[in-house]
């Protein structure tokens, strides 16, 4: 079975500036990959390219075996992207957002599991309210629910846990972990929260100046938890790269 995400030699950016300078990254099924990096290192740009929001200048992106450039519709059918809270349609209700997203993915119905998650996250009272009236955290929850519609092989999250209350954050992390452990999806999460990367991810990739500088595998992460932690290791790697 093809990996949910396979990125090779990716170059691209905004306007004339190359933010990504040859990124190679694989997210396997049943794998949670956390993407770390300093501000401006290209995390969000990489995610934008992976979900088809940004056209790369060079390189290939395959989602569940489908080339994003050649077979975009099939690739996007296997993809769930948690859109940023401020980019959600402000005048539609949460229910309408779910309906439109499900129709866009050509689903027959909204997944019962997603509705259960909405209930558990306390989103049900907000279903008929306009997005503009929701708090930042509530909108973040809605963004994740939209991403999880249609059993995507790849779930792409950009700083999704920012603004979530601790209980909701834990619930969501457990849900994602269950999906990953069941081999139903691969998760790519760009974040600055080292605790999530250290305790929940299977692999941590460090992006520096548009390239993957280092990857910590599961065993290395376990060793780091016993030692100085990911924070120190990250700082050392970045210092060495800058030197």
């Amino acid at each position: 079975m093809s990996a949910p995400l396979h990125v090779a030699g990716l170059r691209g950016g905004h306007a004339e500036r190359d933010v990504l300078r040859g990124v190679d990254l694989v997210v396997g099924r049943g794998e949670w990959v956390a993407l770390l990096g300093a501000n401006g290192s290209g995390k969000s740009t990489l995610l934008d390219a992976c979900v088809g929001r940004l056209r790369p200048r060079a390189g290939t992106i395959h989602v569940a075996g489908h080339a994003l450039a050649g077979d975009g519709v099939a690739a996007k059918r296997s993809l769930g992207y948690a859109i940023a809270a401020e980019r959600l349609p402000p005048l539609l209700s949460a229910r309408e957002c779910l309906a439109v997203q499900a129709a866009a993915k050509q689903l027959a119905a909204i997944d019962a599991e997603v509705l259960q998650l909405a209930e558990a996250l306390g989103l049900t009272p907000w279903l008929d309210e306009a997005v503009a009236t929701m708090s930042y955290g509530t909108r973040q929850k809605l963004g994740v629910l939209l991403a999880l519609l249609g059993e995507p092989a790849l779930v792409v999250l950009d700083e999704t846990f920012n603004g979530l209350d601790p209980a909701s954050g834990l619930l969501l992390k457990r849900h994602l972990r269950e999906r990953v452990d069941a081999g139903r999806a691969g998760v790519l999460l760009a974040t600055h929260a080292l605790d999530i990367a250290e305790h929940w991810a299977d692999r941590v990739a460090l992006l520096h100046e548009g390239c993957v500088l280092h990857c910590w595998e599961r065993g290395e992460l376990a060793a780091l938890r016993k030692g100085g932690g990911l924070e120190v290791a990250l700082a050392q790697r970045l210092a060495a790269a800058r030197a």
């Binding site: 996007k76 866009a104 050509q106």
Partner: peptide, 9 residues
């Protein structure tokens, strides 16, 4: 912007 990452034609 919202729906670009979906397979909507």
């Amino acid at each position: 912007d919202w729906l670009r990452a979906t397979p909507l034609a």
